[in-house]
Design a protein around this nucleic acid. Structure first.
Lengths: 231, 231
DNA sequence: TGAATCAACGTATCACCGATACCGAACGAG
DNA sequence: CTCGTTCGGTATCGGTGATACGTTGATTCA
C-alpha cells in the first residue's frame, strides 16, 4: 500500500511540470524548477525521461491526454462526419484553452520531427477520417484528407493563439472547418453501400472511364473487383 | 569612407547569425556563438537588439527579407488573384527552403505575441487581398479572407516541415490553396467531381477485411485505388 | 589647438541552466 | 552473513543569457 513506485514519481513530476507550465509559461519549465516542485532531485528527471526534450514531450502528451479525458470526448455519435466536426472543435478548444501545451505539441517544429502527443492526435484524426471513408462520404484519399484537416486545424489554432484575444475572429475556426470539409466530403448524404462487394461493384461499373490506370492495370483490377464482388 | 557605422555591425551580426542558424539550427544561436562569429563582444548584441528575443526577431526578419529580395518577388502580374496565388506559393517555398527561419517566425507562438517578420508577411498578404477585393473578386471580408489564407498557409508549411521529407504530400499546398481560394473568391465554379474517386476511397477503406485477395494483391490494389482517389 | 565630456566598448562576472560523474545506501542472491 | 548490483542523492562541469563597471575613443566647446 502507498508504496512509492516509479510510475508514481513519474506522474508526480508530470503533474508538477504541467502546473508550472500553465502558471509560468514555457520558460518556467527548467529542470531545476520542475524537480523542486515535484520534490525530486534533478537527476531523477534524466533517469525517467532521458532528456529535457523527453520531459517536454511527456508533459505535452500529459496535458493533451488530461484534456481529452476531462472532456470524455472519445464517444462516437454514430455519424462519422459529425464525429469529424466534433473532433475539429475539440482540437481547437484544447489549443485555445491550453495554449502553452499546444505550442509544446506543435510549435517547436524541427524539420522532420513530430512530438508524440502530436502523433497521437494525428492517429485519432486518421481513425475518424477512415470511418468517414467507410461511410462513403470522402472525396479524396484518407491520407490527403487527414493531412489537409490536420494542417488547417493546426494553422487556425496557432494563428489564433498569436492573435491578441480581443482581435480574434470568433468564426475563423468554423469557416476553416467547413471550407475544408466541403473540399473533402461528398455532397450526397446517401450511403455508398455499406458492404464491401457493393463498393467493388460500384467502382467496377465506372472503371472504364479512368485515366489513372494503364490498360493492363485496369484489366487486372477489374478481375480482382469481380472476385471481391462475388466473395 | 568605410567607416564602421552602427548599421554596419548590425548587418554583420545578422549575417553571421543567419549563417549560424542555417548551419547549426536554432540551438546553435547562442549569444556567445553569434558574437564570436560576428567578431563582436556579447554585450554588443544587447546594445543593438536589447534582448535575445530581439535578436531572434531581427534574424527572422533578416532571413525573410533576404529571401524576398532574392526572389525579386514584389512584382505584380496585374491580376490580383494570380498575385495571391504567387504570394501563397512564395510563402510555402520560403518555409520549406528555410525551415529554421520559418519556425523562428511562426513556431515560437506565445499567446498574443507575433514576430515582426510575421507581421510583415501578414501586411503583404493583406495588401494583396485588398487588391483582390478592389477587383470585385472577394466573397468575404478582407479581414476574414486574409486570416483564413494566413492560418491555412502557415498550417501547411509547419505541417510539411514536421513531416519527414520523403513522406510529404507534394500536392498538399496546392490543394489547400485552391480550397481556400474557392471559399473566398467569387466566380469559382466548384468542380463537378467524378464519383469514381469516392467509390475507390470507400472500397479502399474496407479493403483490409477482404479474404478474396491475397496479401500481395491487396497491397497492389490499395496502391491503384489511391491513384484513382487522388486523380 | 587643446581639454572636457560623453557615448561606445570590452572585461569580468553573476545567477542559472542542462547534464553527468561519482559515491553511498538499500536490497536481493548465494 | 556476505557479496554484488542497482538506485537515489550530492556535487560539479561546461555553457548560457544578461549586466555592472572601468576604459577608451571620438566629438565638442573654449
Amino acid at each position: 500500500m502507498a508504496t512509492k513506485t516509479a510510475t508514481d514519481t513519474r506522474e508526480r513530476i508530470l503533474e508538477a511540470a504541467a502546473a508550472l507550465l500553465a502558471a509560468e509559461g514555457r520558460d518556467g519549465l527548467s529542470t531545476r524548477a520542475v524537480s523542486a516542485a515535484a520534490g525530486v532531485q534533478p537527476p531523477a528527471l534524466y533517469r525517467l525521461f532521458g532528456d529535457k526534450d523527453g520531459l517536454l514531450d511527456a508533459v505535452a502528451a500529459y496535458g493533451f491526454d488530461e484534456y481529452l479525458t476531462s472532456k470524455r470526448a472519445l464517444g462516437s455519435t454514430g455519424d462519422a462526419v459529425e464525429d469529424l466536426r466534433r473532433g475539429w472543435d475539440l482540437h481547437i478548444e484544447f489549443g485555445l484553452s491550453r495554449p502553452e501545451f499546444y505550442v509544446l505539441m506543435y510549435g517547436d517544429a524541427r524539420p522532420g520531427r513530430t512530438s508524440p502527443a502530436a502523433r497521437e492526435a494525428e492517429a485519432m484524426l486518421r481513425s475518424i477520417v477512415e470511418r468517414v471513408a467507410e461511410a462513403g462520404r470522402l472525396r479524396v484519399s484518407v491520407e490527403r484528407a487527414a493531412r489537409l484537416v490536420h494542417a488547417t486545424g493546426m494553422g487556425v489554432v496557432l494563428s489564433l493563439i498569436a492573435t491578441p484575444e480581443e482581435d480574434r475572429d470568433a468564426e475563423l475556426s468554423q469557416t476553416a472547418r467547413e471550407t475544408v470539409l466541403a473540399r473533402i466530403l461528398t455532397g450526397t448524404e446517401e450511403q455508398a453501400g455499406s458492404e464491401l462487394p457493393e463498393r467493388a461493384i460500384a467502382l467496377r461499373a465506372g472503371l472504364e472511364g479512368t485515366t489513372a490506370l494503364t490498360e493492363a492495370e485496369r484489366v487486372l483490377m477489374a478481375e480482382w473487383l469481380d472476385r471481391i464482388a462475388n466473395a
